[in-house]
């Protein structure tokens, strides 16, 4: 498990002077599930890419357990991208094996059983549906025993029942793995269902406009009455929050 301490002053787009992220400051407790909500184009993916080391983060403060996130090669990171990003030339088994340093057949089997793909190990990604491919991507992320797991709108463009199934799956996997989670979404009810805390971001150049602890008991229900009540209370307080503003008019 890993604690995050993030402070980003100014992050520019590559080869440009346009600011994507401005004065982003937050921390995440070990094992906490944090959801980040913001309008599209608000640099949420950029933020995750900076945490994962894909985007340049020099001169910014990104600490994991008080050490620089990108210096310590030791900690394990799982990243579920917006697209599954599986290698089409590798079977499901091989795709998961790819990210593991040693052969671990039994582990892959257990994981695939957990995501409900026990009999699909020898299939190629193109033989699976979109939802199944995403499940493989999630299994791959959890295969490395991640201390930190990043998810970038992983349930985007899935039909509602499939998305609901995958959310439940994610809850269970997180429970058994205990990783620290940063989850990017634009769906408030999804965030309420999953997260311990929600961070709201503004339009570009993005900064954090609001943070709120989701103090509802777990396990939660998809669109349960308490969850819906909590959501409408928040929306009554900040009607513009999903479009990136906390103004009350």
């Amino acid at each position: 498990m890993i604690a995050l301490d993030i402070a980003i002053k100014n992050k520019y787009y590559a080869n440009s002077t346009a600011v994507v992220l401005k004065d982003i400051q937050f921390s995440v407790k070990p094992g906490e599930f944090v959801a980040i909500i913001g309008p599209s184009g608000s640099g949420k993916t950029t933020l995750l890419n900076m945490l994962s080391g894909l985007e340049d983060a020099t001169a910014q403060k990104l600490l994991g357990n008080s050490k620089s996130l990108h210096d310590c090669k030791e900690y394990q990171l799982g990243y579920v991208f917006q697209q599954p990003r599986l290698m089409p030339w590798l079977t499901v088994n091989e795709n998961i094996q790819l990210v593991l340093p040693t052969a671990q057949e039994r582990k892959i089997k257990t994981l695939l059983a957990q995501v409900g793909l026990a009999d699909k190990g020898d299939y190629y990604p193109k033989q699976l549906s979109g939802g199944m491919q995403r499940r493989v991507a999630i299994a791959r992320a959890f295969a490395v025993n991640p201390e930190l797991i990043l998810l970038d709108e992983p349930f985007n463009s899935l039909d509602a029942p499939t998305a609901a199934k995958l959310r439940l799956l994610l809850v269970n996997l997180c429970k058994s793995c205990g990783s620290t989670v940063v989850f990017v979404t634009h769906d408030l009810s999804e965030a309420i269902y999953l997260a311990d805390r929600i961070i709201f971001m503004s339009n570009s150049p993005s900064s954090i406009i609001h943070q709120v602890n989701v103090n509802l008991p777990k396990p939660r229900k998809e669109s349960g009455s308490t969850e819906l009540a909590w959501q409408s209370q928040l929306m009554a307080q900040y009607p513009q929050i999903l479009s990136g503003s906390v103004s009350t008019d």
Binding site: G53, L54, K73, L77, Y79, Q83, R85, M87, L98
Partner: peptide, 12 residues
């Protein structure tokens, strides 16, 4: 590049 980024993130 997306697939290469997967390799990078998982420290292959």
């Amino acid at each position: 590049n997306d697939l290469l980024n997967v390799a990078k993130v998982y420290k292959l």
